[in-house]
Simulated assay, not measured.
Amino acid sequence: MGNDIVRLHHIGHIVEDLAQAIGLYERMGFLVPPPGLPAMPRSEGAQLEPFGAANTHADFPGSFLELATRVKDGEGAGLPADARLVPLEAPPEVLPVLVERINEAGANLGAFLERFEGLHILMFSSPAIDEAATRLTAAGVRHGGVNTVRRAAPRGAKVPVETVRYLEIDGDEPGGRSGAVTEGRVGVVADLDPDVQGARGLDHPNGAVELVGAVLCVADLELGAVQRRYETYLGRPARRSGPARVFDLDGAALTLVPESGLAALLPGERPVALPAFVGYTVAVRDLALTRDLLRRNGLPVRETPSGEVFVPSDAALGAAVAFRPASAG
């Protein structure tokens, strides 16, 4: 039987100033469209109202990078001038539950920003999300069930509406928030529709073609417990790689690293909190060209022991952004 979670779907960079973040990502060579401001009626027959979060994506064929910030109820203040409303649709019988989950997501973004500006979202991709939900429930993992939202598909797609199905894992710690675990928002999303995703802008000036790695830093004494938790989430074991534990996915990997081993993995990096997502890696067509682009745009560049190059977190709004050749394993 195949795995019901197969790859990385997206990682989310939560920021205070979305316009500033978009400018940074453009300097790093990503193609970033104007942000969307999701809007829904709070009740059947009500007016569209923006709430929850505003976000934009740097898209790849099978994954994406998300930039997001919290939106106060009914407000779009502090967002780029070209931010656009994105109406979401849901059946009337599930609308109250969905509104509650989006409110929780917005509250979580606010709590994330109070903790630190940086990476707070990691979602995995599933070809069988209902099976994944059933497995997680059977394993004792609390989650909010599979939510379904629909939004207009990008121009050029063969279908007018894009359907997104996802679940968020709930934390088990005392006083934990719905839709979030200690390190942030972690969950599962149904695989991206290749036709819909292919209609988006995928030709990045830096040559980026896919999200291929994420790094979660944990306290040394908590490494075993976090490893077991993610083994349950992903339905697969981790392998040892020095002090780190690595979950191999299709074309990507999640790396758990103890605090004492972070500097060896990402030289010069220190976590601002524990546990925390501290960095991610994208594959690029030509690493030398990517490095030159970063330097031309005034960004500091460091190198990892494995030969990846990365923009350090103190120059990238709290996230170490790494690049490796697309041909690398």
Rank of each mutant, 00 (worst) to 15 (best):
N3P: 10
H9M: 01
I14P: 00
Q20T: 12
A21F: 08
I22D: 09
L31S: 15
P33E: 14
P33G: 03
P34K: 02
P34G: 02
A39E: 15
S43N: 06
E44N: 06
E44A: 09
E49K: 01
P50H: 01
N55Q: 13
A58F: 07
P61D: 13
F64I: 07
E66Y: 04
T69L: 08
T69K: 09
T69I: 08
V71W: 06
V71M: 15
K72D: 13
P80S: 03
D82Q: 11
D82F: 13
A83K: 12
P87H: 05
V94L: 02
P96T: 12
G106P: 14
N108T: 15
A111Y: 09
E114D: 15
R115F: 14
L119S: 10
L122F: 07
F124D: 11
I129Q: 04
R135S: 07
L136I: 09
A138P: 06
H143A: 01
G144L: 05
G145L: 10
G145N: 11
V146L: 01
A152F: 03
R155L: 06
V159R: 05
Y166V: 00
D170A: 06
G171R: 00
G175W: 00
R185P: 03
G187I: 04
V188C: 02
A190Y: 09
L192I: 08
P194S: 03
V196Y: 08
H204V: 00
V212H: 01
G213T: 07
A214E: 12
C217D: 10
L223Q: 04
G224D: 14
A225T: 02
R229L: 05
L234H: 09
G235Q: 12
G235F: 11
A238P: 07
R239T: 11
R239N: 08
F247N: 12
D248A: 11
L249F: 06
L254W: 10
P258I: 01
G261C: 02
G261T: 07
A263Q: 13
L266A: 03
G268K: 05
L274K: 03
L274I: 06
V282G: 01
V284C: 08
R285Q: 14
D286R: 11
L289A: 14
L289E: 15
D292N: 13
L293D: 12
R296W: 05
R296F: 09
P300F: 04
R302F: 10
E308S: 09
E308D: 15
V309Y: 15
A328H: 15
